[in-house]
Write a protein that binds this DNA or RNA. Structure first.
Lengths: 192, 192
DNA sequence: GTCTATACGAGGATAGAC
DNA sequence: GTCTATCCTCGTATAGAC
């Protein structure tokens, strides 16, 4: 009998499954990806996957959980009212968050908007993004001002997609160029 | 025997099918949409659909054909070398093109990037977009300059998505705000 | 934790009647 | 042009052995 809290039957299959699923969902789409494909890449069977997740949707939710937490952490850390420095810091934080999660996550969200939207965690992500946009906007901003913020944030995604899928420039360089452009969009073309 | 060139068996089913499919593919995704759903909305059966299209992919291709032609027309009409006025005209042309095809088409392309990418017409669209970006870029522009162009073009898409899905502002207003922002991104924040 | 076997439905696609 | 009927494959999910 063990009492160290470590179960000898423990494996890292669940974590590995999340990684494999992220990659496949991003590249082939959530609906188009079957549990068989995921299981195959893991070297186990479909049935074994059901030990770790109750449904396919649960796999998708597991992938998105960490991403969501990252966004929420950014918003919580942001100081209000927003100073110019605070705005830059928040923007950098978002860029780092995107870089950390990588292209697969960006593509996953873009390509499976509908499916994610229908999940409980989809509503949470939407709400978190709204908060982030609100935090980056000037006090009492209208929809047009928030459009600038949305565009600024999308710059990092577009840079990543351009580098890898459009094959037009290397990722590090484009990511570096994206930041000043994002800041410029945010500030409305006016110098600080 | 008729000789007026009009076949009495002709219907508008094919065109209607393209419209219905566009709407469904955009809202639910290509893979997630079944031929049964499309047929149901048309008031016919799956089998009848196969009279008009040989495969499901052919429906998707039919949807994208007109969109692609519109992009190519823009590029052909663009004068080179690019004057400031020509640049503005081309940008306006793209905005009009996007408006004409509507949100469904934007969502279709975003949400089904992988599936479209795998089709012959996907390569054509990619190539057309490259030409458009090239046409909007200064002579001898590098990847970083082209990133600005990509961002400018995405402004119209993001405006449309923001209005309808994010529900943050009305479409006409956001579209109107998107144009000057796009121009500003294109020009690098420097006044004309 | 993972397996084999299987239930059950839905998918795309075709054949042939009308 | 559209239908009914059918084929075959693949999907998610479960039962029960090891």
């Amino acid at each position: 009998m063990r009492s160290d809290g470590v179960d000898s039957r423990r494996t890292d299959t669940r974590e590995r499954a999340v990684g494999v699923a992220l990659s496949l969902f991003a590249q082939r789409g959530y609906t188009a990806t079957s549990l068989r494909e995921i299981a195959e890449q893991l070297g186990i069977t479909k049935a074994a996957l059901y030990f770790h997740f109750r449904t396919k949707e649960e796999i998708l939710t597991a992938i998105l959980r960490g991403y969501l937490d990252g966004i929420n952490a950014l918003v919580v850390d942001a100081a209000r009212p927003l100073t110019a420095d605070g705005q830059e810091a928040l923007l950098r934080g978002f860029a780092a968050h995107q870089e950390r999660w990588g292209l697969d996550l960006v593509m996953l969200v873009r390509q499976n908007y509908t499916e994610i939207h229908g999940l409980p965690i989809g509503a949470e992500i939407k709400s978190a993004m709204r908060s982030l946009i609100e935090a980056l906007s000037p006090e009492g901003a209208g929809p047009e001002q928030r459009l600038r913020v949305r565009l600024a944030l999308s710059a990092f995604q577009i840079a990543a997609v351009t580098a890898s899928i459009e094959d037009d420039g290397d990722e590090a360089t484009l990511r570096a160029s994206a930041y000043p452009i994002a800041l410029e969009i945010l500030r409305g073309g006016k110098p600080a």
